[in-house]
Design a protein around this nucleic acid. Structure first.
Lengths: 119, 119
DNA sequence: GAAGCCACTATACTTAAGGAAACCCATATC
DNA sequence: GATATGGGTTTCCTTAAGTATAGTGGCTTC
């Protein structure tokens, strides 16, 4: 019985998993995209809400990342006929399939923080 | 009944998850680290093996990333008294706790590839 | 009519990450 | 003694990613 038996089968081709990971990372690359998606898991937000929830994120980057996420079918952009016009961003069903990624990163990050700050 | 009810509770503080994600990403940031960890999930490898399995990875980057992963307790470095000296890199138990991250990224990436290449 | 909010866009600048190439040391093989 | 292999390090250079700052346009409030 090996102590750390991988759940990834040894038969599986290593390069396959490497390509798959690259495909996933291509969509969420950069400093802010995962964070934008994370915030949108809580529900639809408008531009300024997103900017306020993500510390340090400037409007240029937010604008650019939102466009890319929309092009990739991760979010939708809706213009609302409100007093001052507002724009809502919301995860698509496809965007919601990324929730396990966010969840596992958040879980691991939380554990990691406990470890390095000494429980 | 909402169609896409998040498993992340609405009560949970959004900034907490953002910090946790940042903590996780800090360790695996950069172009190569996740790939190195992924390959090491298949078992211990030496320097040249890693370089051969990860297309495009140069020795400078590999060396730098291996050092950082070792400092962060993700991998161990072992010098072997072989004919030409070899060095083995292996995931620590802590490194193995990252397997769910790799797995979920690979799974999602595989699905994503199916989607964009049209099944 | 000045100021403020929302959702951006534009321009200019900085920086850090990564790539390329050369080199180092030891052993060992032709 | 020339070349190869394993495991790197050093230097230099390029480029993409991100930052800072300012401005736009429509509408509303003081």
């Amino acid at each position: 019985m090996e102590k750390y038996k991988s759940m990834i089968s040894e038969q599986e081709d290593c390069s396959k998993i490497l390509f798959a990971i690259q495909d996933a990372l291509d969509l969420i690359s950069g400093k802010w995209k995962i964070k934008v998606i994370s915030v949108l898991l809580y529900g639809k937000k408008n531009f300024t809400d997103l900017q306020r929830q993500i510390d340090g994120l400037g409007s240029k980057m937010l604008s650019k990342d939102l466009q890319e996420l929309e092009v990739n079918g991760v979010i939708t952009r809706t213009v609302n006929a409100t007093k001052p016009i507002t724009v809502s961003y919301e995860l698509t069903p496809y965007g919601h399939t990324m929730e396990p990624i966010i969840q596992v990163l958040a879980d691991w990050g939380t554990e990691h923080r406990h470890k390095i700050t000494g429980r």
